[in-house]
Computed example of a mutant assay.
Amino acid sequence: MSLKSPISLYDVQGLAFGVLMTALGVTFLKEAALVTGQTAGAAVLLSYVLPLDFGAFFILISLPFFWLSWVRRGVSFTLRTIVAVLGISTVTPALGALIRFDELPPLLAAVLAGACCGVGLIALFRHGASAGGLGILALIIEERTGFRAGWFQMCFDAVIFALALLVLPLEGAVYSCVGAIVLNAIIAWNFRVAQTVPAGSAG
């Protein structure tokens, strides 16, 4: 992936879109009391059992991965990722306070969450960032081995959902798994680390 510096208006809109879509996906999850995988899933799960909100956990879990990003991916990628993590941590509770659902079937919430987060993460990847945490490691592994980032994250998600069974009812864990499959399939089928996006192009 080509990392572009200094940041352009093209990248700014892409990062903003990625943050918004990812935050919207997490909002669907929390409204339906579901979880997802990766770092966001761990943060959502912890927010259900400990007295801190999603945003705080999301930042705390991402902190150790920022060093890995700085060493392996460079300054530009790391700074953009920090901005994305802070953005998601801020926008998610804001959306949760603004959006109200009279009825949100959990299966629909899971599919919408997976689709929104998948599209949001692709936007972040395409503009030289990630949502922090495991996404950084997944990109490094794909670059070095060719093992797709989406499939790697799906393996990690299995651990998250095993833990979710201790917190959520079985039905909630199953719906959460559906959402994670949608998310990771979208990334695996629609994004390659090797692809290069010229500055100023559409998409």
Rank of each mutant, 00 (worst) to 15 (best):
G114Y: 15
F152T: 01
P198E: 11
A188W: 08
A23S: 14
A149P: 09
L9D: 02
A113D: 10
V49T: 14
G114N: 11
S2R: 15
A188L: 05
E103I: 06
I181R: 03
T81P: 13
G14H: 06
I122P: 06
W189P: 00
A180E: 08
S8F: 05
S176Y: 13
S176G: 15
L107C: 02
A84M: 13
A202C: 06
L3A: 08
L124A: 04
A162T: 15
T78S: 12
L79V: 07
M154N: 01
F191S: 01
A149N: 04
P64Y: 14
S76A: 15
I136L: 10
P105W: 13
T27F: 08
V49L: 11
V49R: 10
L24V: 05
A40P: 05
A32Y: 03
Q13Y: 15
A33V: 08
L50K: 03
A110R: 09
L183R: 07
R126N: 09
R144G: 05
A202H: 10
S62P: 13
V111K: 02
F161N: 10
S8Y: 09
L15E: 00
V182K: 01
F161G: 10
G135F: 08
G135K: 07
T196C: 04
V111F: 11
P6G: 10
F101C: 06
G87E: 03
V85L: 10
A42M: 14
A109D: 04
V178W: 12
L121S: 02
V26N: 03
R73A: 12
P51F: 14
G203M: 11
L166D: 03
A194D: 14
I61P: 07
A84G: 07
H127V: 01
V119K: 01
L86F: 15
T81C: 13
F191Y: 15
S2M: 13
R73G: 04
A158E: 05
A138E: 07
G120C: 05
M21N: 01
V111P: 02
L68F: 14
A32I: 01
A43F: 08
V182S: 01
R80D: 01
Y175D: 00
A94Y: 11
I82E: 02
G55V: 04
G135T: 11
G41M: 05
G128R: 01
Q195T: 14
A188P: 04
V174Q: 09
V182L: 05
G37C: 07
L45F: 07
G150I: 14
A94K: 09
F77V: 06
L34S: 01
L3M: 12
R144C: 09
F101W: 14
A129V: 05
G55T: 10
Q153Y: 02
T39F: 03
Q13S: 06
G179Q: 09
V83F: 15
N184Q: 11
L60P: 00
L165C: 12
T39K: 02
L98A: 15
V12M: 10
N190Q: 08
L79Q: 03
L139V: 13
L107E: 01
V75Q: 11
S89P: 14
G118I: 06
Q195Y: 07
L108Q: 09
G200C: 09
I59A: 09
F161Q: 08
G74M: 03
